[in-house]
């Protein structure tokens, strides 16, 4: 099924295709052109790749320029109120400087990170549970139905009940985040344990490993790459849930910050908050990936 958007990528692709136009049959293949290219100096190759990198962001640059124009020229000309709704990139930079200077941005960022982190630590319980479910069939049979019922409920759907349970507190926020992180880790751990290469387990047993040894030294290790994948997904889901939870039930955090800014119509602060949330989410993801690669250099799955 050709995707309409795909056509946008055919530009650069076409070059590759043109270079490989099939030769008419029977025509002798001309000898490879031996005009040895002059050794390209390192700086030139660098410049070339830098140029390619820049051109990758061409659309982004154009969009930002358009946005700047819309917010500072076009919208104010139409209706000043509209201009407030769409803060210009320059005012966002100014707001960022302001929030960094008065410390608000980091205060809220750290409040959010702290919640994410403590929920993450709690949700590590999913790893032993997942290993138990993947290893002992009766545990799986008993626990899985419970999981299957709870898992499809979006963390956000728990917000009303959790407010009644925990009040508007850090606990309530962490509970919502926990729900977001827990299930991806659990599901990935269970799958990982169930797909551990049977011969590795057999090898360890013929080398004298007890069942506990097998779990500790083989099953857990073999499952680690996918557990880390689960953690990555979990932290991502948790981060989204976190911001939503803070919108409703918190007095600190990035979610609170953007909701608070709404009440005083500081759209620039809202956008700064949104961008911080996005960048932080990306950094967490990159950080876990980097850690995974460093800690498990043997794993082809994480090397990608």
């Amino acid at each position: 099924m050709p995707h309409p958007l795909r056509t946008t990528t055919t530009g650069p692709r076409m070059e590759g295709v043109a270079a490989e136009v099939p030769r008419p049959a029977g025509q002798p293949v001309p000898p490879a052109v031996q005009t040895a290219p002059p050794p390209s100096p390192a700086w030139r190759r660098h410049a070339g790749s830098a140029g390619r990198h820049l051109s990758r962001y061409a659309l982004l640059v154009v969009l930002i320029a358009l946005w700047q124009f819309t917010s500072t020229v076009w919208l104010p000309a139409k209706d000043p109120y509209l201009a407030v709704l769409m803060p210009a990139p320059t005012s966002i930079i100014a707001a960022t400087a302001e929030l960094v200077a008065n410390g608000d941005l980091f205060m809220h960022l750290f409040a959010s990170l702290k919640r994410e982190l403590s929920a993450f630590v709690l949700s590590l319980a999913a790893i032993p549970l997942g290993i138990a479910m993947g290893w002992w069939r009766p545990v799986y049979v008993q626990v899985n139905p419970v999981i299957e019922i709870l898992r499809p409920i979006p963390p956000l759907a728990w917000i009303p009940l959790s407010i009644l349970w925990f009040g508007l507190s850090d606990m309530q926020n962490q509970f919502i985040i926990l729900l977001g992180i827990f299930f991806p880790i659990l599901v990935n751990t269970v799958t990982a344990v169930r797909t551990v290469d049977a011969n590795l387990i057999r090898a360890s047993r013929t080398l004298g490993a007890s069942e506990w040894d097998v779990l500790r030294t083989v099953v857990f290790k073999a499952a680690l790459p996918q557990i880390i994948t689960g953690i990555r997904i979990g932290l991502g889901v948790g981060w989204m849930a976190l911001v939503a939870a803070e919108l409703v039930g918190a007095t600190t955090g990035l979610g609170f910050m953007i909701n608070d800014a709404r009440s005083i119509l500081r759209t620039d602060i809202i956008v700064v908050g949104m961008l911080t949330i996005g960048v932080m989410g990306l950094l967490i993801d990159l950080g876990i990936r980097w850690l995974g690669k460093r800690l498990l250099p043997w794993s082809p799955a994480l090397a990608k």
Binding site: D197, N199, L200, R202, A203, S204, R205, T206, L207, G208, T217, V218, K221, A222, L224, L296, W298, S299
Partner: peptide
């Protein structure tokens, strides 16, 4: 009895611990 080091085994696919 159950598997143990008195009867260690080599496998066709090596079964080395990749980590």
């Amino acid at each position: 009895g159950p598997p143990g080091w008195e009867r260690s085994m080599m496998f066709q696919d090596y079964a080395l611990f990749p980590w």
